[in-house]
Structures are given as C-alpha cells and as structure tokens.
Nucleic acid binder design. Structure first.
Ligand SMILES: [Mn+2]
Ligand SMILES: [Mn+2]
Ligand SMILES: [Zn+2]
Ligand SMILES: [Zn+2]
Lengths: 167, 167
DNA sequence: AAATTATTTGCAAGTAATTCGCATTTAGGA
DNA sequence: TCCTAAATGCGAATTACTTGCAAATAATTT
C-alpha cells in the first residue's frame, strides 16, 4: 500500500511522461534532476542536485532545468534563507517548512496553518525548539499585468525586468 | 491625527534612540537607511536604498547596516522572489505581501490570513487580478541548536555554514 | 572641551550563485 | 533514417553580496 504523495509514481517513466505532457523533451539530464529531487527528503539546491547526479551534471543545465520545470509548475522553488534557491517536486499537498535560522535545518510542516497555530506546529515538529518568525507571501498576477496579459513571462534574470518602484 | 503604525515616530530622532537602545552608534548612514525604509511604501532592495540616499551611500555600508539591523530585529527581510533581498522596518503589525510573478509589483496584505482566505485577500487587494501561489515558512531554532545554544549566530555568508544534508 | 577608543565607514578586491553565448549534440517527429 | 527544433556543455560574464584594512568618527572618559 503506497503511502501518500511522496510515494507517487516518481519513476523515470513517470517523469518522462510528465515532461512530454508539458511539451518538453524527456532528456536524461531532466529525468536525473527530477529523480534526485524525488529521492531527497528536503528541498535541494543546485549544488546538491549536481552532487547527487552521478557524472555529467553541468551547472548551466541544472539551472536551466530548474527554471523550465518551475515555469511548468513541475517543481517549486523554496526560500529557506540560505544563500541560494532550493527546489522540490510540486507534489499534491501544499506544505510549508520549518527552517532553523541558526544551522539551516529544514523540516516539513504537513499542512498549512499559521500564527495562532504555531504552538501546535511546534508540538508536531520533530526537531524544533522554538519558532521565532514566519513569512508568508502570496504570488500571482497583478491587475495591470492581467490587463496586457502576456507581455513576456518574467524571467528570473534581468532584461526589461521589473519596471517598478523600489527595484 | 496620525493613522496607524506606518506613521509611527519614524523621525531621525526616534531612529537615533532606537539605535542607541540596541547598543549601536547612531550614525548618519544608519539613520539615512532607516529613514529611506520608513519613507518607502514597499520593502526596499540594497540598490533602491542606495539610490534613495542623497550622496555618500557605500554598498558595503548599506549591506552591513541591513545585516546589523536585521539581527537586532529593527528591520525585517522579505523574500519577493526578485533576485535580491528586500527589507522593511519591522513595524508593529505583522503583515504579508502580494507579489506579481510577472512584473514584480508588491502590495501589502494588512493582516495574516491564508489559503481559504485567498478570495478575500484578492477582493481587498487593489492591484491584483489573481493569486496563484503562496509560500509560508516558519523560522526559528531547532532542537540541536537550542541544546548547544550559542554555537555562533549563523552569519548570512559562508564559514562553517549549514552543517546539513542537501546543502 | 580635548583626549581616548571601540565602532563604523569607504574603497577596492574577492566570492558565491546564477546566467549567457555559441558551437555541438540529441530527442522525437516525419 | 533524416531533419530540425530543442537541449546540452563549456567558458566567460553578471549579479548580489562580503571582506580586509586603513581612515574617520560617535560616544565615552577625563
Ligand atoms: Mn517540503
Ligand atoms: Mn510590507
Ligand atoms: Zn504585474
Ligand atoms: Zn538548528
């Protein structure tokens, strides 16, 4: 009996289908990245993925894979306040993380609660002594962007980036 | 009649007192950074702060000021998924942000709600067409760190950084 | 008010993370 | 099997941020 979504069909074949379904070529590199992410119990950094991949793991390819799969919604970027981005497979259940500001340790929070629930979150946690902060951001599309719908997807790099106040 | 906390005493004098209260020297640079953050309606990046500061605004000083004030809890770091950190004065009310994934626009959410409340958040929002994601992270101290309490505060840089799995 | 000193600053150089240009390879349809 | 758009790999570039160190200065102390 398969447990939950973490046990989903994270087989090479499944990934191959997912990629094709999104109109992407099912390359060894991409399948390897997805497999690494699927195996890891925590969000992974580019470096971690590269180390996990046996040989041929070019950084440019890994980063490009992250970007592509993130755009397609196959993986999710997680901010852990380390000095680099982390990614995890965008599995079914929405969940959050407990991040130690001192050592960086990360632990999943199985569901989405907040503030008043912090005591409860802490009680359920396995490795945390206390919670001192939490951050919540909503991401979506603003009115003006929705209006001129499709002015060019905001690539994470520069370009005619964020045409906005305060950088 | 002063409105809410955003109108708090964000005067140079008030900042001077705050700094001293935290055992820091009330330098022109620090007061200028705080004043810039106080004036801005949105979290600011280092670049934005430097541009806002009339003359003498060295990047090293701005970054060092961010780090120091963040450690003291005077300002708060905000992740907007742009390619750099943003900061805002850690005013009274805890609040979150609406971030446009396309153009980067940012808007405050006055209170802390979640998920089921997204429709309501969207209704209250002034500039958003839709919310497609939200991210919540809890920050605190993990058990092992709490145990050996004070092994050296995790500086944002490297060093004997995160002694953990997956980078 | 001048002397004292631990902090803080400014500048220049250094790093870490991520991106880009372009020649070469390859997945997958014809 | 051929063809071609898409993807890779390499190196160089960029960006965000940090650091070393000498000079400047805020807040004592006298
Ligand atoms: Mn997770
Ligand atoms: Mn805000
Ligand atoms: Zn927008
Ligand atoms: Zn810890």
């Amino acid at each position: 009996m398969p447990s939950s979504a973490r046990t989903a069909d994270h087989t090479a074949e499944a990934f191959r289908r997912t990629l094709r379904a999104h109109g992407l070529k099912a390359t060894p590199a991409r399948i390897a990245v997805l497999t690494a992410l699927a195996r890891a119990p925590r969000p992974m950094s580019a470096q971690a993925v590269m180390d996990a991949l046996p040989r041929n793991a070019d950084q440019a390819t890994v980063y490009r894979t992250f970007r592509t799969l993130k755009e397609k919604g196959v993986i999710r970027q997680i901010d852990l306040r380390h000095n680099h981005a982390h990614y995890e497979i965008a599995g079914a259940e929405e969940h959050h993380h407990l991040v130690c500001l001192q050592c960086g340790r990360v632990e999943d929070v199985d569901r989405c609660w907040i503030e008043d629930m912090q005591p409860a979150v802490l009680r359920r946690a396995k490795h945390f002594a206390r919670i001192t902060q939490h951050a919540l951001e909503f991401y979506g599309i603003c009115r003006s962007c929705a209006a001129r719908e499709r002015p060019s997807p905001r690539s994470t790099a520069k370009g005619s980036d964020i045409p906005l106040p305060s950088y």
